[in-house]
Write a protein that binds this DNA or RNA. Structure first.
Lengths: 146, 146
DNA sequence: TGGCTATACTTTCAAAATGCAAGCAAACAG
DNA sequence: CTGTTTGCTTGCATTTTGAAAGTATAGCCA
């Protein structure tokens, strides 16, 4: 297993859940991962446009922390010299079941929580097919960006 | 679906995941739920003793917020006039798959993350059996408390 | 080539959340 | 009646958050 910055600093406990929450336990990180996992958003500006209203400093901070934790990667943009392209690593892709379960829980338990029907169909359908799409970096929801 | 305080205030977006994170997205809430779900910890003092070092004011705050969100219940202690007994509601019990997936992710991806072997066996074994134990409020790990 | 615009952040600073430590009132034990 | 335990609450310093403004570079068009 490769090094992962966060847990090497000091872990409050060896509990796997506590360690997971040290990386994922905030209001924004999993939303960025959602965008990378289920849509074709890959750039800084795309995440800003996703509607929840994250501010630029928090976004920059979370992108850096997620990268430090080995959950996402950052590479120069092939056609635009200033931009970068973010993507999930294998470690990030492995978060798919977590994202799916939280989403389904919220959908069932919280008034007003919704999922695009494209998600819902694919989540309630063949779980293996969904995992294959995510691993192939094939967005469930392909957005027109910009 | 019953009222649930948090999402009625104002939701940043209708996205189910975002709504879930408004309730669960911090470093402590899911650890309290873990104690209720997998062990026989049910009292304020029990949560303090679980080793991660939550402070008393944060614990009181999270217990209140989780109760407001309908995830846990609070009842007078049957034999001790000052104490209360906390437990998961149906809505809290429904978080089992979420907790399991985060735990398994962290176990596989983070150096030093561990699970008690009792958990591991039961998580990797028959998932339906585990769900039945949780629904019957039967702790996977029965601790000697105090 | 020169200036305008867009993009990807960074900085600033006020406000909110966190967390340690001390305090406190009710309950229980002797 | 006295002292201890329990379940919080309060005070306060530190950290994190977040809106808004700033900055530096890339791309575009004349």
């Amino acid at each position: 297993m490769t090094l992962c910055k966060i847990e090497n600093d000091k872990q409050r406990s060896p509990c796997a859940l506590a360690n997971g929450l040290d990386i994922l336990g905030d209001r924004w990180s999993l939303l960025i991962i959602r965008d990378l996992m289920f849509t074709n958003r890959r750039e800084f500006g795309h995440f800003l446009q996703s509607g929840e209203g994250i501010s630029t400093n928090i976004l920059a901070d979370r992108l850096e922390k997620l990268q430090a934790a080995g959950v996402i990667s950052k590479a120069p943009h092939p056609s635009h010299g200033k931009k970068f392209v973010y993507d999930l690593t294998e470690r990030g892709i492995a978060l798919a079941p977590t994202l799916i379960e939280i989403s389904l829980w919220a959908l069932g338990e919280i008034d007003g929580a919704k999922l695009p029907s494209a998600f819902l169909e694919v989540m309630q359908g063949d779980r293996n097919k969904l995992m294959a799409m995510i691993k192939n970096r094939q967005p469930v929801l392909r957005l027109k960006l910009e």
